[in-house]
Design a protein around this nucleic acid. Sequence first.
DNA 1: GTCTATATTTCGATAGAC
DNA 2: GTCTATCGAAATATAGAC
Lengths: 203, 203
Amino acid sequence: MRTVDPAKHQARKRHIVDAATVLFATKGFERTTTAEICKAAGMSAGNLFHYFPNKRAVFLAVFEDDRDDKAERLVQAQSAEDPWQALLEVVDLLAAPAAEPLAPPLVMEAMVQAYRDPELEAVLSRSNAEEHATVAALIRKAAATGQVDPGLDPDGAASWVLAMVASLYTSAAGDPAFKPAEQLPTLRLILQRFLRAGPKESS
Amino acid sequence: MRTVDPAKHQARKRHIVDAATVLFATKGFERTTTAEICKAAGMSAGNLFHYFPNKRAVFLAVFEDDRDDKAERLVQAQSAEDPWQALLEVVDLLAAPAAEPLAPPLVMEAMVQAYRDPELEAVLSRSNAEEHATVAALIRKAAATGQVDPGLDPDGAASWVLAMVASLYTSAAGDPAFKPAEQLPTLRLILQRFLRAGPKESS
DNA sequence: GTCTATATTTCGATAGAC
DNA sequence: GTCTATCGAAATATAGAC
């Protein structure tokens, strides 16, 4: 007999993760106490540890949830008709959260913690691998339709596209005056010139 | 009467900084103890604290020294005849250390610590401002000679150039298999296409 | 290096759903 | 009656001060 409703259980975990996300982003992982998470989530320590084995697991769940979310939306964007338009949509999708105040510090914190936590490292690199595969596939498609320079290595180019998107997060994290949204037009311009350029180059 | 030879004092500080750099890069700031720094530098704690007030000051000195170093070499590269060649040289100069094993983790560590240490933050942003000014000036010059698209905003473009260089460090820090040196040709290609593109764009 | 303060995690109990 | 969510206090671990 199972009396636990999986959906409810999942929702409860999500509630905890949402509360913890704010704290992790503003105070960092170590400086956030489980007591604070409990208070933010409106529950006791005993209850919190009923859902997660330890604090690290809560942190991990932040990025697992995000990965699931993103993977789903990537499939959407990927399925768009025109490969070049799909690529631009994917880039927008990946870049958009950089404008939210919590995302950049959270990304920084994740990079730091990934250094010390192989499990987190695994989640992040899986997430990155999915993004890379999506972007590379679209570049390949767009090259096939002549919308992207066929001379480019799709995997190498995809890495650079992702690196540029990532720099929106690192820049925003370091400098509060940096506005990622304002950089999107320039990012699109760079991508356009880099990827669509024809085979002939003037040195 | 002065009993300290300033040059000798400076050299001794440099020696400590060099020894500490290796430790900071491999173990991170917090996990490096002052005792380890003493041992690596071959001196007693009393002697070390004669040169630096605390561990944080040693860490700070790593980046101050680097800034001085870089500023000097930036002047060199900046003075090259052709603005476009000068720009490429500056980029190479800034990108080159990414290939050294210690630099990427050290850069990461600096970014993390800058979050919590306004003094370090100041050193890093000053360093960044100098790089930005140099690159922007060269872009302006190259635009004037028609080697760079005059439609670009030099400051905005310079920020993106630096962001791309920085991504060599972050990528190398995260993934041991990533080889910054191999990415240099692609980086140059991106810069070339982004910056040199004429005014007409095919959408 | 010891000791204190603070944070994390475990434990046993209670109350309600099925 | 069994199973689960919840609580709050107790025990363990960790970190910081002296």
